[in-house]
Structure formats: C-alpha cells, structure tokens
Amino acid sequence: MELLLKFIVIFFVVFYGMKYLFRLLMPFALRKLTERVMQKAQQSTAGNGHAEYRYTTNNPFDQFKQTNSTKRDGEIKVDYMPQEDAKSRKGTQTAGEFIDFEEIK
C-alpha cells in the first residue's frame, strides 16, 4: 500500500511539473519556430518576389509532373485513354432509359 501511494504521489508531482515546464517553454519554442519559418520564406522570396518551394521528399509521382509550362490556361492533355468495349459496359450505360416519377400517397 505504501508503494502504491508513493507511486501516485511521484506520478502527480512529475505530471504537474512537466505541465508547468511546458507552459513556460512552449511559447519560447513556438516563437523560435515561427522566426525560422519566416526567415526561410524571406530568403526564398528575396530574389524574384515569388516564393520558391522546394520539396525534398521522394514522391513516386514526381515523374508524372509536367516539366514544361507552355500550355495555355484551360488546355488539357490526356496521356492515356483506356479502350472501351461494348461488352464491358455495366450498369446504367446498358440498362436503357429511366423515367422520373413522383410517388403519390
């Protein structure tokens, strides 16, 4: 019983001590973090006035991104169109016409 009481007291002392430390240290840490982010943003916009975001993640879809930006707005390029067979169509495509109706009670 003495061991359980000792554990509970130590647990609450550590818990409230950590809570107090976080309340003191988190504003300082968040301020430093925002300063770093703002400094990086200012450095990236220093040359041309536009932000240049560089992602260093290994995204498997990077190879599909378009490298040239010669397309006009609204223009669409389709790289692949699957073949459509009349036999493979299902559901509403081969079911025929549907008539809207209202249910009368």
Rank of each mutant, 00 (worst) to 15 (best):
D85W: 09
Y55V: 07
A95G: 02
K105D: 14
F12H: 01
L21W: 07
E52A: 07
R72Q: 13
D85V: 08
V37A: 10
Y53H: 12
E103L: 14
M26Q: 03
L21S: 04
K77H: 06
R23G: 15
T45K: 02
E52T: 11
Y80L: 09
R72T: 09
L4A: 13
T94D: 02
A86E: 08
E35T: 06
F101V: 11
F64M: 02
D100M: 09
I99L: 06
K77F: 04
Q66D: 05
A95E: 09
Y55N: 15
K19A: 14
F64I: 01
F11Q: 01
S69M: 10
K19P: 02
F22C: 07
G91F: 01
L33Q: 09
Y55P: 08
I8K: 05
Q43D: 14
Q63S: 14
M38Y: 06
F98K: 13
R31P: 00
P27D: 00
R31T: 02
T57I: 13
K71Q: 05
A51Y: 15
M81A: 09
T34A: 00
F15Q: 00
R36N: 12
I99H: 12
A51R: 07
G49H: 00
G49T: 00
K77V: 15
K87Y: 06
F7Y: 08
F98L: 06
F98M: 05
R23L: 12
L24Q: 10
Q63L: 11
R72I: 09
F22G: 06
S69W: 11
D100R: 12
H50Y: 15
Q93R: 15
A41K: 12
Q83M: 03
V37E: 08
V14W: 07
E97T: 03
G17E: 01
Y80F: 14
I8S: 10
E75C: 01
F61P: 02
R23H: 11
K19T: 10
I99C: 05
L5R: 08
L21Q: 03
S69Y: 12
D85L: 10
K40G: 06
T67W: 04
K71C: 05
